[in-house]
Write a protein that binds this DNA or RNA. Structure first.
Lengths: 341, 341
DNA sequence: TTGTAGGCGTTATCAC
DNA sequence: GTGATAACGCCTACAA
């Protein structure tokens, strides 16, 4: 009606206030702390809101309060079997408390992660959630200065400053060896992820190596060159089984590699676990459907999202803190013994 | 320095402007249209930006311009093999143009979708992206009034008002029948998705029915009661194969069902496709790894995200429109003939 | 090419 | 419990 600029064309707090015969700040309070507004006014405001189809403008609210109701998350990828469950549960939990999720993918690139963090900070998110403990120096600097809670997921290194919600990848690597050693296997190989940048997978490999050494067994790491995980698995099986002293058991960096390797072996006439035991990581959806079904370690993907959301909401005061819960951020990985090993 | 309220504590355009000895609007222009700022000023501003570690505040920008650089997307789910690729490619494309993705899940519930849309509108997103053509009346009303581009994905019904980017589910159902009929199968059953709310899957079923009728074959639809897709598939196979005149071929509403069904059959001693042909939908990651590998129809998940992003960016004037491309929004589904049928 | 004035819609602060 | 005022940080409109 007045100014020289046109807004959204939507009703504002002022419109609601005018119609309800109150001041705009009362309308604002009606939404944020209804209990401190008298019932009479509440009813009048509710009517006006309905009549005008009023929707609060969160951009304006975030600007005024310097704390938007968005939480930003950078994750290696959205598709792919690994992180989707984390995103899903994290997002659902936040939505229930009126927060929205801003999402970007890093594809395991620290540079991409840093630029995503930089872009996100411009939204003044209420909190920032990253994946793993490994970041560029620039990212470290940004999160050190960031005036908001920061949570790191999919890793657990409690000595770091940001809150950690995840598990120990080194321990996962060790568990695989322990299981296979317990079954009597000696020549146990490890197939690395061909995807460089997935540094957590290297932690699992390191766990494998250390436990092998402790058993007095010789570590045997195969590094595929194929980018496609199924191809990489095939490449590994071809190399590790078609030799004079083939591997007795193979630990793969993830279930995709394991499935690709096992399939290639089956088509080549190998039998699992008779000719070689196969051990994966991740418990992807298909892993129990393979023939033989895949022995693997289930990662707590969904739980990571839930707990991370809880920690964020606690840090924001949306949810009461439940005491000293630091250690509850270390989540369990479940070894699932199936047919392949 | 001045006010009675504290902001983010970060540098603002004004700080940059002061340090660079220009006005704040020039700094603003430096970011939005650098080419109209003289090179001398550009250098001074760049220096000041670096010195102050300035990050633009997008909430403020969105408020002032009434058009934030966020795009909101409501999708049935993030995890699950279907939509992740769409989200991934959509998000990547947007990020490249400086837009951020706001994401929420509807779980195939129209109520959840509507409340997500309502929440999103408060962010004044630059565009709104939904899934399928089926929405609540409330959602229809909201998007009809919304002052922003709306794109519907995973469906193609050009007569609708919003831009459609997807494919014809009816056609997919018909194709399955055509393929199996061409292979000589007559008693072809269809296994519906146990997930109610997935209305597009019912379109595929309708396509199956219409094509069966055209061939003079009797449609045979099985509706599982198990919620878990693998269990539902098992239930279907048990019912359809363990009877006097078992099905010769089964079309499953998606690859999860198909895999669950096939696995259950294999474990029960059935052989595929000798005893029964198996046909899926979706071409999930595991489908080619099964033994036998799964004949299915690949959905253009990734392309949907790409094209949807392109249409959004075109509607926002970020990317030049490439002529009358309406029909290019109808994407192809590829039938992938493998071993199971 | 650059600057001035003021508003975008909300909320923090202070006063009643 | 309610209201007046100004500020959050940026950008549109207009002027020079």
């Amino acid at each position: 009606m007045s100014g020289k600029r046109k807004g959204l064309g939507r009703a504002t707090v002022h419109d609601v206030a005018k119609l309800a015969g109150v001041s705009s700040i009362t309308v604002s309070r009606y939404f944020k702390q209804p209990e401190i507004v008298s019932e009479a006014l509440r009813d009048r405001i509710a009517e006006a809101v309905a009549a005008l189809d009023y929707l609060p403008n969160h951009a304006a609210g975030g600007l005024a309060s310097t704390r938007g109701r968005v939480v930003a998350m950078v994750i290696p990828n959205i598709s792919g079997p690994i992180f989707a469950n984390t995103i899903q549960s994290f997002s659902d939990e936040l939505n229930q408390h009126g927060y929205q999720l801003l999402l970007a993918s890093s594809y395991f690139s620290m540079e991409k992660e840093e630029s995503a963090v930089r872009a996100f900070l411009g939204w003044s998110p209420a909190a920032l959630v990253l994946t793993s403990q490994y970041h560029s120096e620039g990212t470290e600097r940004l999160i050190a200065k960031a005036a908001m809670p920061v949570v790191e997921t999919w890793d657990y290194v409690p000595e770091r400053k940001p809150v950690q919600v995840g598990f120990s990848h080194v321990e996962v690597g060790r568990q695989s060896v322990e299981y296979l050693h317990g079954k009597g296997y000696k020549r146990i190989a490890y197939v690395q992820n061909s995807l460089i940048g997935d540094l957590s997978a290297l932690d699992r490999r390191d766990g494998y190596i250390s436990r092998m050494n402790e058993y007095g067994l010789e570590p045997w790491v195969f590094v595929p060159t194929q980018a496609d995980p199924f191809e990489a698995g095939r490449q590994a099986v071809n190399s590790l089984l078609l030799r004079q002293r083939p591997a007795e058991a193979i630990v793969f960096a993830n279930d995709n590699l394991a499935a690709g390797g096992m399939l290639a072996g089956l088509r080549a006439g190998k039998r699992f676990p008779e000719d070689c035991a196969i051990f994966g990581f991740g418990n992807y959806a298909f892993s129990e459907m393979l023939l033989p079904s895949l022995t693997t370690i289930r990662s707590p993907a969904r739980e990571i999202g839930e707990v991370a959301a809880l920690r964020v909401l606690q840090a924001l005061g949306e949810v009461p803190a439940d005491g000293p819960v630091q250690h509850l951020n270390l989540l369990d990985c479940e070894l699932i013994a199936r047919e392949s090993a």
